[in-house]
Each structure stands twice: as structure tokens, then as C-alpha cells.
Amino acid sequence: MGELLPGINREEALRYMGYRGGDLPEELQTALSESEREVLEAAEPRYRYALFELERGSNLSLRGTRLLLPGESIRKLLEGCDACILMAATLGGAVDTLLRRAQATDMRKAVLLDGCASAAIETVCDNLETRFRAEWSEKEKHLTGRFSPGYGDLPVLWQQELCRALDTERKIGLSAGPSGMLLPQKSVTAVLGVGTAVQKRQTRGCQTCALFDSCSFRKEGKTCGNLAPE
């Protein structure tokens, strides 16, 4: 666990809380440290992933399965790829409990914890991705960035298929509800393309984001930080 989530990226956590610079009173910093500690204590990062070869017939699909990869965005992402990794990661249910409890007793705490937990699951995914990159670069393969259901035209509901393919409910306690909502809440699913000829291009940028129209960061000329690596 330590290596996947060595700590909370405070800058990232603050961004999730809508922090736009300005004075951080000492009392607030103390509360923030406390929230970081509580999230780290409650988090039990678990993950699943699997490599699938791509099959390009009339639809893009995963070989040896009945899984289709629907939509234009995922097709574009996987141009030049011969396989893809499906991944799912979660901080576990104890973090949800922590958030629920705080919402009943102390809303500021809830907001601090929520930001820290969002940053935490991103860190877990970043570390997993780094691990994948290292592993596949030994095999002379490159990876695209992470692309999650809900980005572009890849439906949020597709999370259900992904979770079933990885048997996440049984293996890591992660399920996708009827509206595609992940439970535990602080969880991420994603697809990463694998190929020798992966293009260096933006795969996790604002243009592909489902929140493109409503994003409050973008309206202020900023970003949430989920941009593709250079």
C-alpha cells in the first residue's frame, strides 16, 4: 500500500476543493494535515488490471471476450495500439464511511476529506500507470494516457462492463451501480492503449473531458491537472 499511496498530494487536494490561491490560515492547514492523515489511515488501495489484445472488425473489441469498446473517442485513443490495459482501482469502503460520518457532523471536515481522498485515488492511479509504463517499456511498448469511461463519448455506463471483465466486485470489492456510479466512491476505472507506435498526444485533456462545458477550472483559464503527460 505504501508504495501506491505514499502520501496525499496537497496541491492536488486543494485544487479539488476549489482552492485558487490566497492565504491558508494555520488553523486550516492543521485541519488539512489531520484530514490527510485520516484518509491515509482509512485508505486500503486495491486494484485490478488485465491486458487484452484488440480486434478491429466492424467494431473495436477485446479478443477472447465479448467486450466492445464503444465510440469514437476510444477508437481514436487506441489508434496505433495492438492491445490495451483495463484497470480499476479503489481506496476501499472505509474512506466512504469516513466521508459519510464527516458529512453528518462537520461539513468542512467532509470537504477537506473529500478533496484529500480524490487526490489520493489519483495518486494511486498515477503510481500504477508509472509501474505499467516501466513494465511495458522493457518490452519496447508504449502506453497512452489513462482514459476513463465518461471521457469523450465513452459512456459512464461502460464501467459496468469493465468491472465485470475484471471481476472487480469479487476481487477488490468494487462495483458499478445502475447509473454507472462506482462504489466505493473514491475509485477509478480506465483504459490504457499499448503499442509500439503509440503517438505522443493529449489523451487526458480538456477536449476529451465530459465536463468540458461545465468545468469551473476551465472557465477561469485553469485546469484540474488531469492532463496527458508530455
Binding site: 476543493m17 490566497g22 490560515p25 470537504v111
Partner: peptide, 9 residues
């Protein structure tokens, strides 16, 4: 933008 959400709450 002088204060942010946790401070408002």
C-alpha cells in the same frame, strides 16, 4: 476567490 470552500463552510 479570496477564500475557498472549506473556509466558507
Amino acid at each position: 476567490g479570496e477564500i475557498f470552500l472549506p473556509q466558507l463552510i
